[in-house]
């Protein structure tokens, strides 16, 4: 059985690394390390040593030029001490069959790097973006999500609905044009959608759809299903008492189930 080796990438303003690493350990990953971008530059760690990358939430570079914009350029142009482009390592990692999960700011990074949605298999080309919430505000609130059973996404396999917190100001998906949006749907890039709790259907109603994302899109998959990016925070629901109404007896499947699915996939379960 292959070992599941997780690298949680941090530095330059990422701040959900600790709970993301905890979540990976909690669901049974064999090795979990929190790795700073500077460790990659120093050549101390190589991405290809692992088979599961998590890009956690945070505020890369303060989101100063737009969410994760500066970080995406750093990934694209930075080289290791030995002069190797770090981007090549990322490509090699993915080509070797690894899994990538981007959460919130990590999702924004994957989108800006062009790892998502990679429609038509065009990886590393920026096709969509994530922009300001319609409310114009950062907001922390819990949302209901529905997984798309047709999506190739390995993380959402067997999941019907989830209840997770969102904590962002720039989560509204912007596709280049209507055709681009239609293609995301047709090719099942849409992995998760915000739903109305009463109907269970994708919604544009605020606050159930917290940012005005079209078709309630909350998460995207690449064509292989091995890359998932989502705005909500699965790692922040790692214990029943994270649920905002657990004292009322309300409960829902833990968010870390998404990460557990990744671990299972790599194990070949």
């Amino acid at each position: 059985m292959p070992l599941v080796k997780v690298l949680v990438i941090t530095g330059y303003g990422t701040n959900c690394d600790r709970e993301s690493a905890h979540a990976a350990r909690q669901v049974g990953a064999d090795e979990v390390s929190v790795v700073f971008f500077s460790d990659l530059v120093a050549g101390r760690v190589r991405l290809t040593e692992a088979n599961f990358l998590i890009f956690p939430g945070g505020f890369l570079d303060g989101d100063d030029l737009g969410a994760a914009q500066a970080a995406a350029l750093r990934w694209k142009y930075a080289r290791t001490k030995a002069g190797e482009p770090i981007f090549d390592e990322l490509k090699a990692f993915f080509n070797a069959g690894g899994l990538i999960l981007g959460i919130c700011n990590g999702f924004q990074l994957l989108v800006k790097l062009g790892l998502l949605p990679a429609a038509g298999g065009a990886y590393f080309e920026r096709q969509v973006s994530l922009s300001n919430n319609d409310s114009g505000r950062f907001e922390d609130r819990w949302v209901w999500l529905k997984a798309n059973p047709e999506s190739p996404c390995v993380f959402t396999k067997g999941i019907d609905t989830l209840y997770l917190p969102v904590r962002h100001g720039e989560g509204k998906l912007v596709a280049g044009d209507e055709a681009g949006l239609a293609r995301l749907v047709a090719d099942n890039h849409v992995a998760l959608q915000y739903v109305h709790p009463e109907t269970g259907r994708p919604t544009q109603d605020y606050p159930y759809n917290p940012n005005g994302s079209p078709l309630g899109i909350a998460g995207l998959s690449d064509p292989t299903g091995r890359i998932l990016g989502l705005m909500p925070h699965p790692e922040a629901f790692n214990h029943p008492t994270n649920h905002p109404a657990w004292t009322r007896g309300e409960s829902a499947p833990l968010g870390v189930t998404l990460i557990e699915n990744g671990v299972r996939y790599l194990r070949g379960d």
């Binding site: 922390d140 904590r167 905002p244 109404a245 009322r248």
Partner: peptide
């Protein structure tokens, strides 16, 4: 309250806004 992240770090057990 909602504009402040009150649950980053993953350990939130009682939040500032509660109830149904």
């Amino acid at each position: 309250v909602r504009q402040y992240d009150h649950e980053v770090q993953g350990g939130s057990a009682v939040k500032p806004m509660v109830g149904a």
